[in-house]
């Protein structure tokens, strides 16, 4: 395993499904689900040796009637590993997005640090997003957290921008770009620009 960052555009790149890390290995993966792409993305990472570092992020952009499922399982079988997950979604039209994230910490996998976040913005009343972050922890000396939010674009921000002359559509776009920026910033610049143009 290498620590070099890898980016996967669903529908364009071959997407990894399962990987095992031995002691001291690391990975940094970023997934992009572009508009128009329905998918069932399953990622399983097993940390089998101590001192691993895992950093997984993803962004999903659903605008019409996509069905996107993202299932992530990070298994801390060995102690002293760090895992981070950050998934952000923008869901509009009649699209349905589901996120299942499970952090499993095996008995004896002490000094584990595991974090998971999933945030979604809904653009329409008919769009649906479900988030099921789960922690399953069988060790007692660990630091784990998970968080999930689902909301709409903030009308106060939109009005503030419009009052400065930024048109409604552009104000919404700026808000969306800001929302996904923590994930987009992980992509190569050309791909960033390509994805920005799709938002």
């Amino acid at each position: 395993m290498t620590a070099s960052p890898e980016v996967f555009v669903v529908g364009r790149d071959a997407v990894p499904s399962a990987v095992r890390l031995d002691g001291g290995e690391s990975l940094r993966w970023t997934f992009v689900v572009p508009p128009g792409q329905s998918c069932e993305l399953c990622v399983e990472v097993d940390l089998e040796g101590p001192g691993c570092e895992v950093d997984i992020a993803g962004v999903y952009l659903c605008k019409s009637d996509e069905k996107v499922g993202i299932r992530v399982l990070v298994r801390h079988d060995s102690g002293s590993c760090v895992s981070r997950q950050l998934f952000k979604g923008i869901v509009g039209g009649r699209a349905v997005a589901e996120f299942d994230g499970l952090i499993y910490v095996k008995e004896g996998a002490q000094k584990t640090k595991a974090y998971q976040e999933n945030h979604t913005i809904l653009l329409s009343g008919e769009a649906r997003a479900e988030s099921r972050p789960q922690l399953e922890i069988y060790a007692d000396d660990v630091e784990c957290s998970h968080g999930a939010t689902t909301g709409y674009l903030d009308p106060a921000q939109e009005f503030y921008m419009r009052s400065r002359g930024i048109p409604e559509a552009e104000a919404k776009q700026l808000q969306m770009l800001a929302f996904v920026a923590p994930v987009l910033s992980r992509l190569p610049e050309a791909l960033q620009e390509e994805i920005k143009a799709l938002i």
């Binding site: 921000q157 503030y160 921008m161 700026l174 808000q175 800001a178 929302f179």
Partner: peptide, 8 residues
């Protein structure tokens, strides 16, 4: 009450 716009 000026509005906060994180990320911009």
């Amino acid at each position: 009450y000026p509005v906060e716009i994180p990320g911009v």
